[in-house]
């Protein structure tokens, strides 16, 4: 049943400084509320247990896409629609655009944010695998200062994050070193849109003289968190793509992920399809 709205408190600080001050004053007391596309669902179902929220939707410091020489910085409030529309993102980070296109419907894409997708920490989220491939870094800010954290180190367990209760995720930084990667993004689901994925796969690689010079593999919905499959990457590096390599990589990948049976699919299916996705990626990589 829908929660009782007067039980909730929502504050809208004037500035980032005010927001951080509030978070510092009552650690754990306040939680950020951005696009609301996840939180409103919980509210409607009466499952939103936390009661005090900090609206950050209007804070200019958390908005915009900035292109510098060596990296692109996305404000945490960057929406899926903005990701799809930005020229640099389209050119250099196509996996994020592909993920954004597959997230929810148009209304969700207009309102849902990249930062929200990260801190909601769902292992089935669509954009995190792409962020993992791009070696994204997160800027976490508190009154104590600013720290930069590789996104790969952010999720520590199911819905567990390397983030303090007084911190805000403010920006996402993408190094501009991946524009030449051959990329692959595939969300596998029951229907063509608006379905939480059974398996989500994002990958990028660079070939050099017939061998894999650089490869990044990331998966969603196959473990308690989204995962970057570094052992499989290791195995593939400097290899030519042939049947033996593909077979070995498939086997390695299947040891690196730990999918479960749930309402949306089976562990068996997820294991096999993850391996098939990798094989499909390698096939395409070979033929480009």
């Amino acid at each position: 049943m829908r929660a009782y709205l007067p039980d909730y408190e929502l504050r809208a600080p004037r500035s980032l400084t005010d927001a951080l001050a509030l978070l510092a004053r009552e650690p754990g007391g306040w939680r950020a509320f951005a696009g609301g596309t996840d939180l409103m669902v919980l509210l409607e179902a009466g499952l939103l247990t936390h009661r005090k929220f900090l609206s950050i939707w209007h804070l200019p410091e958390l908005k915009g896409i900035e292109v510098a020489n060596d990296h692109v910085t996305l404000g945490a409030l960057t929406t899926y629609t903005e990701v799809q529309r930005d020229e640099t993102m389209r050119r250099e980070f196509p996996l994020l655009g592909a993920a954004a296109r597959e997230t929810g419907g148009i209304a969700i894409q207009n309102r849902g944010t990249l930062g929200g997708n990260i801190v909601n920490a769902s292992p089935a989220a669509d954009s995190p695998p792409a962020l993992l491939v791009y070696d994204a870094e997160l800027e976490l800010v508190s009154t104590r200062g600013t720290r930069l954290l590789p996104y790969r180190e952010f999720h520590t367990g199911y819905k567990q994050m390397n983030m303090q209760s007084d911190e805000l995720l403010t920006r996402i930084r993408l190094p501009r070193t991946t524009g030449d990667l051959k990329t692959y993004y595939r969300k596998v689901g029951t229907r063509k849109a608006q379905a939480i994925s059974k398996v989500c796969f994002a990958a990028g690689a660079r070939m050099n003289d017939g061998r894999i010079a650089d490869v990044r593999l990331a998966l969603g919905s196959v473990a308690p968190t989204v995962v970057r499959c570094t052992q499989t990457e290791e195995l593939l590096r400097n290899q030519t793509i042939d049947e033996a390599t593909t077979k070995a990589a498939r086997e390695m990948l299947m040891t690196e992920i730990t999918p479960i049976d749930d309402m949306r699919s089976t562990a068996d299916y997820r294991l096999n399809v993850a391996a098939n996705l990798l094989a499909d990626f390698l096939r395409q990589l070979k033929h480009t």
Binding site: S265, D268, Y269, N272, V273, N276
Partner: peptide
């Protein structure tokens, strides 16, 4: 006819 039922433990390819 969901994907997992169709694919079983391998692939159709």
């Amino acid at each position: 006819i969901t994907l997992d039922k169709l694919l079983g433990k391998g692939a159709l390819a």
